[in-house]
Amino acid sequence: MLVILCTLVPVLTTSFGLFVVARTVMGALHGLFVAVGFVLAMSIVPPERMGRAISVVVSGLFVSTALGVPLGTLVGQALGWRGSFTAGAVLSVVVLIGTFANSSAVITGLIIAVIIIPVAWAAGFLKPPVIADATELAAATV
């Protein structure tokens, strides 16, 4: 639940300091998540399979990073940075609900979440960001 809160705070605040605090807490939670993942993976397998369990956790982290960065960039370009944070919070809520319900709910929820965002955008519920041309961007940075 802290992950959801730390994902929504930057969307809802206008304070840069609060933004930085929320992102710092999120980074600390990620470190805790990795440590807990290692412990859980090692605790559910026999001792001779612990190395493989840790490798599965590490592989999941690397795959999620390799897929998450381009997908997050795509969502950010389509919905703006606030939209990408909101999408992350929505996915976190779906995963939290699925965790309490059962694992098939997680898969179903993720599929729905991946479909809902593009459909809502296409239906006009979400507005695409206005992209300035290069001359406007150059003038704004000077």
Rank of each mutant, 00 (worst) to 15 (best):
S59V: 06
W81D: 05
S92P: 01
G60E: 00
Q77T: 04
I97T: 13
G51Y: 11
A105R: 14
P70L: 02
S103H: 15
W81F: 08
P70C: 11
V39R: 09
I44M: 13
F85Q: 01
A41M: 05
L61I: 04
L67S: 00
V63C: 00
V58M: 12
L67P: 00
G76Y: 04
V58W: 02
V45A: 09
L71S: 14
A53S: 10
G72V: 03
T65S: 03
I107A: 09
G68S: 09
G83I: 03
V58G: 09
A53C: 05
G98W: 08
G98T: 12
V39I: 07
W81R: 10
V93Q: 02
L71Y: 15
L67K: 00
R49G: 07
G83H: 06
S104Q: 14
G98L: 05
G88M: 15
V63S: 00
L79K: 03
V106M: 13
L74C: 09
T99D: 13
F100C: 08
A78F: 02
F85S: 01
V56E: 10
I97K: 07
A89I: 04
V94M: 11
F62V: 12
G68T: 09
I44E: 05
L96T: 15
W81T: 14
S59N: 03
V58S: 10
A89K: 06
V93W: 10
F62Y: 04
L61Q: 00
R82A: 05
A41E: 11
F100Y: 15
A105E: 15
M50F: 02
S104F: 15
G83Q: 08
T108M: 12
T108R: 08
F100A: 13
A105G: 10
V34I: 13
A41N: 08
G98H: 08
